[in-house]
């Protein structure tokens, strides 16, 4: 039953993803991609669970590496997206574009 339930979530999320993204204007494709990329760092949750389980030895090494790589993905992804988006400005509303 667990498998069916997880697959159910998978299928619905895929459709939701298609709906959410299909209308994004080309201007935002790069931030969208790096923002989505940051979300894919959600695997950090799995890495944290593994790294905290005190398995010791090789397993702990792998888990630690997983936490490091996932953190690079999450922190870097969100920060770089934010940096890009902060540059997008509308035409002369406040004169800030000058």
């Amino acid at each position: 039953m667990e498998i069916i339930y997880l697959t159910f979530i998978l299928v619905l999320s895929i459709f939701l993803g298609f709906e959410l993204i299909s209308k994004v204007p080309a201007t935002l494709h790069t931030p969208l991609m790096s923002g989505a990329n940051a979300i894919s760092g959600i695997t950090l949750v799995g890495a944290v669970l593994a790294a905290g389980a005190d398995m010791g030895g090789f397993a702990e090494l792998l888990a630690g590496l997983a936490v490091i790589t996932a953190s690079v993905n999450v922190v870097g992804g969100y920060m770089v997206t934010n940096r890009m988006l902060s540059m997008f400005k509308k035409k002369d509303t406040t004169g800030a574009a000058k």
């Binding site: 999320s13 939701l16 298609f18 989505a36």
Partner: peptide, 23 residues
Amino acid sequence: GFAIDNNLLIVAGSLVGSAGIIL
């Protein structure tokens, strides 16, 4: 997410997966 039975990984992962496919 499937491997560790975590539905948040499945939801977030598939959102990103479909976004990438559209692009």
